[in-house]
C-alpha cells in the first residue's frame, strides 16, 4: 500500500511519518508517532477526547486529515509538564479530583491549555464554553471547571510550554 509522507513538529520535535492517504491525525499520532496521549472516543468529532493543538488552536485530531498538518506545530498532552514535574493545570486536575476514568482528561487538558494561553483569567462561563466540545461521563464537569479556574489562579498556562505556534 502506498503511503504518504507528512512532516510536522510534534511537541517541539521534528516528526516525519508515512501514513495512509486518508488517515486521520489521531491515527497518525497514535500508531504512527507512538504518542498515545490523545484518545479515540468517537472518531466523529463529537466527544473531544482526541483534542490536540494545531498551531495553538484546539482541533479534533480524529476528523483532521493527517496530511493537512504538514508544516504545522502539533501539541498533545505529552507536552504538558516534564518528567516528574507537572504543569499547574495537571496539578490542579489532581488536586481537584477532576478525573475519574481519565479517558476525557487529555482532551480536557488541551482544550483548557488553549483557553488559558489565550485568556489567562477566564470567567467560569468562558471555561465552560472552552470545554463545551469535550464530553465527560464521570465527573459531571464541575470539578473540571473548578480545576481549570484554579489553574488560572496559579498560573496555569505558564507551565504548559507555550510558544511552539
Amino acid at each position: 500500500m502506498v503511503k504518504t509522507p507528512v512532516r510536522f513538529t510534534l511537541n517541539g520535535q521534528e516528526t516525519g511519518l508515512f501514513i495512509d492517504e486518508a488517515a486521520n491525525l489521531l491515527e497518525a499520532l497514535r500508531r504512527g508517532a507512538g504518542d498515545l496521549t490523545p484518545k479515540q472516543g468517537c472518531a466523529q468529532g463529537t466527544c473531544g477526547t482526541c483534542t490536540v493543538l494545531i498551531d495553538g488552536e484546539p482541533r479534533l485530531s480524529c476528523i483532521t486529515l493527517a496530511q493537512s498538518v504538514e508544516g504545522t506545530h502539533v501539541e498533545t498532552t505529552a507536552s504538558l509538564g516534564r518528567g516528574e514535574m507537572l504543569a499547574p493545570l495537571q496539578q490542579a486536575f489532581i488536586d481537584g479530583f477532576a478525573a475519574q476514568c481519565g479517558f476525557c482528561t487529555p482532551g480536557m487538558l488541551m482544550a483548557a491549555t488553549a483557553l488559558l494561553r489565550r485568556n489567562p483569567n477566564p470567567s467560569r462561563d468562558e471555561v465552560i464554553e472552552a470545554i463545551s466540545g469535550n464530553l465527560c461521563r464521570c465527573t459531571g464537569y464541575e470539578p473540571i471547571v473548578d480545576a481549570i479556574l484554579e489553574a488560572a489562579r496559579s498560573g496555569g498556562a505558564a507551565g504548559t510550554r507555550a510558544g511552539h505556534g
Binding site: G45, G48, T51, P58, R59, L60, A111, A130, S132, G133
Partner: peptide, 9 residues
Amino acid sequence: VGGPAVRNA
C-alpha cells in the same frame, strides 16, 4: 456551530 474545536475546522 459545535464546540471551539469544531468551529476551528
